[in-house]
Amino acid sequence: MSEVKQANPIRVLVAKPGLDGHDRGAKIVARALRDAGMEVIYTGLRQTAEQIANAAIQEDVDVIACSILSGAHNTLLPKIYKLLCEEDAQEDILFIAGGVIPDEDIPGLKEQGVAEIFTPGTPTTSIIEYIQDAVKREGKL
Protein backbone atom coordinates (compact mmCIF):
# COMPACT_ATOMS: atom_id res chain seq x y z
CA MET A 1 0.00 0.00 0.00
CA SER A 2 1.38 3.40 -0.92
CA GLU A 3 2.17 5.78 1.86
CA VAL A 4 0.20 9.03 1.69
CA LYS A 5 2.85 11.59 2.46
CA GLN A 6 1.64 15.13 2.56
CA ALA A 7 4.52 17.49 1.99
CA ASN A 8 4.08 20.96 3.35
CA PRO A 9 3.58 23.33 0.46
CA ILE A 10 5.96 26.24 -0.05
CA ARG A 11 4.10 29.49 0.64
CA VAL A 12 4.77 32.33 -1.76
CA LEU A 13 3.48 35.88 -1.70
CA VAL A 14 3.14 37.05 -5.29
CA ALA A 15 3.04 40.81 -5.17
CA LYS A 16 2.69 43.53 -7.72
CA PRO A 17 4.21 46.71 -6.35
CA GLY A 18 4.14 49.99 -8.18
CA LEU A 19 1.59 52.02 -9.99
CA ASP A 20 1.26 50.36 -13.38
CA GLY A 21 -1.93 48.47 -14.05
CA HIS A 22 -0.67 45.23 -15.54
CA ASP A 23 -0.72 42.07 -13.51
CA ARG A 24 -0.77 39.58 -16.37
CA GLY A 25 2.80 38.52 -15.66
CA ALA A 26 2.16 38.21 -11.94
CA LYS A 27 -0.91 36.09 -12.56
CA ILE A 28 0.95 33.77 -14.92
CA VAL A 29 3.65 33.25 -12.30
CA ALA A 30 1.01 32.73 -9.59
CA ARG A 31 -0.70 29.99 -11.58
CA ALA A 32 2.56 28.32 -12.51
CA LEU A 33 3.63 28.19 -8.86
CA ARG A 34 0.25 26.81 -7.88
CA ASP A 35 0.53 24.12 -10.53
CA ALA A 36 3.93 23.25 -9.08
CA GLY A 37 2.19 22.55 -5.77
CA MET A 38 2.88 25.83 -4.00
CA GLU A 39 0.46 27.87 -1.95
CA VAL A 40 0.35 31.30 -3.54
CA ILE A 41 -0.99 34.31 -1.71
CA TYR A 42 -2.00 36.79 -4.34
CA THR A 43 -2.59 40.39 -3.27
CA GLY A 44 -3.46 42.19 -6.49
CA LEU A 45 -2.31 45.38 -8.12
CA ARG A 46 -0.60 48.54 -6.89
CA GLN A 47 0.84 47.32 -3.62
CA THR A 48 2.99 49.55 -1.49
CA ALA A 49 6.18 48.23 0.11
CA GLU A 50 4.46 48.42 3.50
CA GLN A 51 1.50 46.38 2.32
CA ILE A 52 3.77 43.71 0.87
CA ALA A 53 5.98 43.42 3.95
CA ASN A 54 3.00 43.30 6.29
CA ALA A 55 1.21 40.67 4.24
CA ALA A 56 4.37 38.57 4.05
CA ILE A 57 4.74 38.63 7.82
CA GLN A 58 1.12 37.83 8.61
CA GLU A 59 1.10 35.05 6.04
CA ASP A 60 4.48 33.71 7.24
CA VAL A 61 5.51 33.04 3.66
CA ASP A 62 8.72 31.32 2.64
CA VAL A 63 9.08 33.48 -0.45
CA ILE A 64 8.15 36.95 -1.68
CA ALA A 65 8.04 37.15 -5.46
CA CYS A 66 7.60 40.69 -6.77
CA SER A 67 6.63 41.38 -10.33
CA ILE A 68 7.64 44.88 -11.20
CA LEU A 69 7.29 46.80 -14.45
CA SER A 70 6.93 50.36 -13.34
CA GLY A 71 10.62 51.26 -13.25
CA ALA A 72 10.49 52.02 -9.54
CA HIS A 73 12.38 48.85 -8.64
CA ASN A 74 15.42 50.71 -7.29
CA THR A 75 13.35 52.33 -4.56
CA LEU A 76 10.55 49.80 -3.97
CA LEU A 77 12.53 46.57 -3.69
CA PRO A 78 15.15 47.82 -1.20
CA LYS A 79 12.35 49.36 0.81
CA ILE A 80 10.53 46.04 1.11
CA TYR A 81 13.77 44.42 2.24
CA LYS A 82 14.35 47.13 4.81
CA LEU A 83 10.88 46.62 6.25
CA LEU A 84 11.51 42.88 6.51
CA CYS A 85 14.74 43.59 8.37
CA GLU A 86 12.90 45.82 10.82
CA GLU A 87 10.79 42.81 11.77
CA ASP A 88 13.80 40.52 11.76
CA ALA A 89 12.13 38.49 9.02
CA GLN A 90 14.73 38.85 6.26
CA GLU A 91 16.45 35.55 7.07
CA ASP A 92 13.25 33.56 6.96
CA ILE A 93 11.97 34.92 3.68
CA LEU A 94 13.49 34.42 0.26
CA PHE A 95 13.04 37.67 -1.65
CA ILE A 96 12.98 37.50 -5.45
CA ALA A 97 11.77 39.77 -8.21
CA GLY A 98 10.96 39.66 -11.87
CA GLY A 99 10.09 42.10 -14.60
CA VAL A 100 11.67 44.79 -16.66
CA ILE A 101 14.85 45.49 -14.74
CA PRO A 102 17.95 46.75 -16.60
CA ASP A 103 21.09 44.63 -16.21
CA GLU A 104 23.06 47.48 -14.69
CA ASP A 105 20.59 47.72 -11.77
CA ILE A 106 20.81 44.06 -10.83
CA PRO A 107 24.05 44.07 -8.79
CA GLY A 108 22.81 47.01 -6.72
CA LEU A 109 19.51 45.31 -5.99
CA LYS A 110 21.27 42.12 -4.99
CA GLU A 111 23.37 44.09 -2.56
CA GLN A 112 20.20 45.47 -1.08
CA GLY A 113 18.54 42.17 -0.28
CA VAL A 114 17.01 40.81 -3.48
CA ALA A 115 18.23 37.22 -3.75
CA GLU A 116 17.54 36.74 -7.44
CA ILE A 117 16.09 38.65 -10.36
CA PHE A 118 14.27 37.12 -13.32
CA THR A 119 14.14 39.22 -16.44
CA PRO A 120 11.32 38.93 -19.01
CA GLY A 121 11.36 35.73 -21.00
CA THR A 122 12.56 33.58 -18.10
CA PRO A 123 10.52 30.37 -18.29
CA THR A 124 8.36 29.84 -15.22
CA THR A 125 10.00 26.44 -14.79
CA SER A 126 13.31 28.17 -13.97
CA ILE A 127 11.60 30.29 -11.32
CA ILE A 128 9.97 27.19 -9.83
CA GLU A 129 13.26 25.31 -9.75
CA TYR A 130 15.06 28.25 -8.22
CA ILE A 131 12.49 28.55 -5.45
CA GLN A 132 12.41 24.82 -4.73
CA ASP A 133 16.20 24.61 -4.55
CA ALA A 134 16.61 27.71 -2.42
CA VAL A 135 13.93 26.73 0.06
CA LYS A 136 15.39 23.25 0.35
CA ARG A 137 18.90 24.66 0.80
CA GLU A 138 17.76 26.89 3.62
CA GLY A 139 16.12 23.87 5.23
CA LYS A 140 12.96 25.82 5.76
CA LEU A 141 10.46 23.04 5.31
Partner: peptide, 16 residues
Protein backbone atom coordinates in the same frame (compact mmCIF):
# COMPACT_ATOMS: atom_id res chain seq x y z
CA UNK B 1 -1.28 19.54 -7.55
CA UNK B 2 -1.64 20.34 -3.84
CA UNK B 3 -1.18 23.98 -4.79
CA UNK B 4 -3.54 26.91 -4.41
CA UNK B 5 -3.95 30.55 -5.27
CA UNK B 6 -5.30 32.28 -2.18
CA UNK B 7 -6.77 35.57 -3.36
CA UNK B 8 -9.03 36.85 -0.61
CA UNK B 9 -6.55 39.51 0.53
CA UNK B 10 -7.06 41.36 -2.75
CA UNK B 11 -10.32 42.73 -1.34
CA UNK B 12 -8.82 43.63 2.04
CA UNK B 13 -5.66 45.49 1.04
CA UNK B 14 -6.84 48.66 2.68
CA UNK B 15 -6.19 47.00 6.04
CA UNK B 16 -2.84 45.44 5.14
Amino acid sequence: TGGAVLGDRVRMNEHA
